[in-house]
Computed example of a mutant assay.
Amino acid sequence: MDLRAILPLVPVLVALGETEHVTAAAEMLGMPQPNASRAIRTLERRLGVALVVREGRGVRLTDEARALLPAFRRALQTVEEGIDAVVGASASTVSLAFQTSLGERFIPEVISAVRRERPDIRFELHQGARSVLIDQLRAGRVAMALVVDMPAIGGDVDVVPLFEQPLVALVPDGHPLASRASVSVPDIADWPVVTLAPGFGLRDSLDALFARSERTPRIAFEGEDLITVRGLVTAGLGLAVMPEQPVVPADCVQVPIRSRLASRRMCAVTAGGEARAAVLLVRDTVVRVARERRIWAEG
């Protein structure tokens, strides 16, 4: 027997078992009464047994139909449970992308805050370069991206500003710039610079800082994480343009940069019209955590 020919008809018999009336069963299923009657006749033909006996204006289920009902009900319940598991998991899972610099403190704080309120929400986390994250958002592979809005993010997206961060020059102890009260972009250009690779938000900030200067940065190393950049500054390979930090790496000094461009704005970006409750809750939590902490040094 071809189960594929039987399965579409299972809900009709289950509904008829609840009502023992074809019209009421059709209304329960949201289908015309003739379609329900036809479905029962088709099911009888395919099973080779009678399922209903007419009694006055109604019908009575046969013993064969009543024997089938428990199995049919279990089958429908199993399908419904499977759908609920998949759809429920999808509805409460948020794919969150973030720049590498946010992974140390900000993202853990956000996840902890969400779980205190909604422990059922699950996260799919993606970390990487700003340009890659924006591409993932536009392709629908992530629901939200936490990135620097520099240059401005275009397209059909909603951008929520989170916080501004001053940029500083991170230099090793003993460096000629370490004793300065502040430095200019040309001052930085005189020295090798350790930074992140093109496409990362911090590299965008560095390039924007130099964009209006006649000087260009002397790149000594292009990495993919801030821990490596900080370590190489400590080792004396070069200086770095970094977000200001409350705790300065050992054997380093951070010096303010004299430029109105020496800052960056971190944003939460979602697709335009995003309406999923779990995504909006996470975005609200991101905004709240950012406001509570004001400025996150590693962001």
Rank of each mutant, 00 (worst) to 15 (best):
D2C: 01
D2G: 07
D2S: 14
L9E: 09
P11E: 00
L13C: 11
T19D: 06
E20T: 06
H21Q: 12
T23W: 01
A25I: 01
A26M: 10
L29R: 01
L29S: 06
R38I: 00
A39R: 15
I40G: 08
R41H: 12
L43G: 02
R45N: 14
R46D: 12
A50P: 12
A50I: 00
V59I: 14
L61C: 02
A65T: 02
L69A: 06
P70T: 06
A71Q: 08
R74S: 14
E81H: 09
G82V: 02
V86L: 07
V87Q: 08
V87Y: 11
V87L: 12
A91R: 15
S92N: 13
V94R: 10
V94M: 12
G103K: 01
F106I: 08
P108D: 12
P108K: 09
I111G: 09
A113F: 06
R118I: 00
D120G: 09
D120L: 04
L125V: 06
Q127M: 13
L133K: 01
R138P: 01
A145Q: 11
A145I: 08
L146G: 10
L146P: 05
V148R: 09
V148H: 08
D158V: 04
L162K: 01
F163D: 07
V171K: 01
P176V: 00
L177S: 06
L177W: 04
S179T: 14
A181Y: 00
S184F: 02
I188K: 04
A189T: 02
D190N: 12
T195S: 13
T195Y: 02
T195Q: 01
A197P: 07
A197L: 09
G199K: 11
D204M: 11
F210G: 10
S213K: 02
I219W: 04
E224C: 08
L226G: 15
R230Q: 14
G231M: 13
L239P: 05
Q245M: 01
V253H: 09
Q254T: 03
V255P: 03
V255Y: 02
V255C: 11
I257V: 05
R260N: 12
L261E: 15
C267A: 10
A268F: 02
V269H: 11
G272I: 02
R276F: 03
V282A: 10
T285V: 15
V289L: 02
A290K: 08
